[in-house]
Amino acid sequence: MNKSICIIFNKAPYGSQAGRELLDIALMAAAFDMPITAIFVEDGVYQLLNNQQPDILHIKNHSSTFKALPLYGIEDVYVAQEDLDKFKLDMGRLLDIDGIQPVATDTIKSKIAHSNFVLTL
């Protein structure tokens, strides 16, 4: 059994490269058949917002790649319900990613605890 990775997106898109560069790590690790859990917390939930238009800022849009996570074999995708609530967001405002689940903080803690590696940028 390959070692597992938990990747935590906790920053908003475009203000920094963190989301995009973390996404690249996730896709590469998936290509090595490492079991990956992707978790979106705090400002990171904004990475998943639908209808992003960063082209106005002349910044490349990486958000559509999140929709392809299941295609890359990343099927464990979780978003913090508490943070969605905090920002007055709901699942209807987010990208339509197959299998994405809103979860409670305790579930996120457990996912982190059960991973061999935890990465964030």
């Binding site: 790590i25 590469m28 690790a29 090595f32 490492m34 061999n116």
Partner: peptide, 19 residues
């Protein structure tokens, strides 16, 4: 490439990030 980071995780017990 980034594959070298993945390989480092596969072959190490710990990966520590300094950001």
């Amino acid at each position: 490439g980034l594959g070298q980071l993945t390989e480092a995780m596969l072959e190490s017990d710990r990966l520590i990030t300094f950001g």
